[in-house]
């Protein structure tokens, strides 16, 4: 769905932020992890057409990003910003979520329906008339997710969606990702929460200093401890525990751990 070739970018001459990135992204749900400042946010802004590549090409569902305006791409690819304050500019929660659908020429009825459904998914239906800036940080993050989900694009990118979320909030986001996957959308998430990565994503890409350091099945990626360390990330807690206990295979979730334990007890 997305093809990136030889992508390079810098904000200022002489300090490259991304260099020589080649990636193909398919329907598999994908996590992007890596050190602060590795270039993750920059990368997804390039995919979205918000920044222009210095070199290389990006194709999103056959749109050549270089030759398409960000607005034209909006139907196809949605991005939830890392800083919610950068994304919100309407006066009420409902307007904020309706803005996108209306702009991509969805008819009013449909736009409202989509918006209300997205708002219900993040559990903000009680706050339709509130000014987005009066929400708490965790609610702002959820609102920004709803604003993109309502547009129903084929590709959805979330930049650190779980910031400030409690257990229930993370659970909501998990459900949303699952619902999107069920609709065959590509969900891509930049995230520092390794447990969340292990539980929700099939594929994991590790960025390091503007390059792709690792890319593969999440399980396979989390088995490469030394490489992860180099990128300032680590396997999830449960994976570490399993490894310390001498389990050979890479365990990703509590369920897997328990399941294995029960099997072992039965033998």
């Amino acid at each position: 769905m997305i093809k990136v070739s030889d992508l390079s970018f810098s904000y200022r001459k002489g300090t490259p932020v991304l260099s020589g990135i080649n990636l193909e992204l398919d329907q598999r749900s994908t996590a992007i992890i890596g050190q602060n400042g590795a270039g993750k946010t920059t990368f997804v802004k390039l995919l979205k057409g918000l920044l222009k590549a210095d070199e290389g090409d990006i194709f999103v569902n056959n749109h050549h990003v270089k030759e398409t305006t960000a607005a034209e791409l909006a139907k196809t690819i949605g991005l939830v910003f890392q800083n919610p304050n950068d994304q919100m500019f309407k006066r009420t929660v409902l307007d904020e979520v309706m803005f996108g659908p209306l702009n991509i020429k969805m008819d009013k009825q449909q736009a409202k329906e989509n918006a209300l459904m997205a708002i219900r998914m993040v559990d903000l239906q009680g706050k339709l008339d509130i000014n987005p800036h009066d929400l708490s940080l965790s609610e702002k993050k959820l609102l920004c997710i709803a604003a993109i989900v309502a547009m129903d694009p084929d590709i959805i990118i979330l930049d650190e969606p779980t910031i400030a979320q409690d257990h229930a909030g993370k659970e909501k986001i998990k459900q949303i990702i699952k619902a999107l996957k069920d609709k065959n959308k590509l969900v891509m998430t930049i995230i520092h929460d390794m447990d969340f990565v292990a539980e929700n994503f099939e594929r994991t890409i590790v960025f390091n200093e503007g390059k792709v350091l690792l890319d593969g099945d999440t399980r396979q990626v989390f088995s490469q401890k030394d490489m992860l360390k180099k990128a300032h990330v680590e396997p999830p807690g449960i994976t570490q525990l399993a490894e310390m206990l001498g389990i050979q295979e890479t365990i990703l979730t509590v369920e897997e751990f328990i399941h294995r334990n029960k099997e072992a007890a039965r033998d």
């Binding site: 992890i33 602060n36 390794m194 360390k229 990330v233």
Partner: peptide, 12 residues
């Protein structure tokens, strides 16, 4: 107040 919400695991 949640000082490491955006930090990479090593940084956190």
């Amino acid at each position: 107040d949640e000082p490491t919400s955006q930090l990479d695991p090593a940084g956190s």
